[in-house]
């Protein structure tokens, strides 16, 4: 079961940004950070720590790095420092990040 968001969303914002989270549709409001959008969306973990425990965004000001997430193919991006954008593809990271594969590897 997906835990409900731990936050109430104020109705004072206009506009909507369409993104995906692990391939599923996710909407946010313009001007939000990725981390805020995820917290508004659900109360579930958005990342695993190095030892595999669940984490969500924590400090919201770029200090703690608990909001790391893959943004448009870029792993370990700080979600609290990244503004949402239409078409953005987010992926929650499980385990350590990978490296970009070169063509030769494929």
């Amino acid at each position: 079961m997906k835990p409900a968001s731990r936050f109430l969303t104020r109705p004072d914002q206009v506009g909507v940004v369409h993104m995906t989270l692990d391939g599923e549709a996710l909407t946010a409001r313009p001007g939000d950070t990725v981390a805020a959008a995820l917290l508004a969306h659900s109360g579930a973990a958005s990342r695993q720590s190095v030892n595999g425990s669940s984490r969500t965004a924590f400090c919201m000001m770029g200090v703690c790095f608990d909001c790391l997430i893959e943004v448009d193919g870029q792993p370990n991006t700080q979600g609290c420092m990244t503004l949402v954008r239409d078409g953005m593809a987010l992926r929650r990271q499980r385990g350590l990040r990978d490296i970009a594969r070169s063509d030769a590897d494929a």
Binding site: P3, S5, R6, F7, L8, T9, R10, D12, Q13, R29, G31, D32, T33, A36, A37, L39, A40, G43, A44, A45, S46, S49, S53, S54, R55, T56, A57, F58, C59, M60, M61, D66
Partner: peptide
């Protein structure tokens, strides 16, 4: 303190200011 659902109070205030999010039954 590392569990999802535990945050610094100031972080929640940042969300109130920047995203209009209000902590629910906090």
């Amino acid at each position: 303190w590392t569990l999802p659902g535990v945050m610094p109070a100031g972080a929640a205030q940042i969300l109130m200011k920047s995203a209009g999010l209000l902590p629910r039954d906090a």
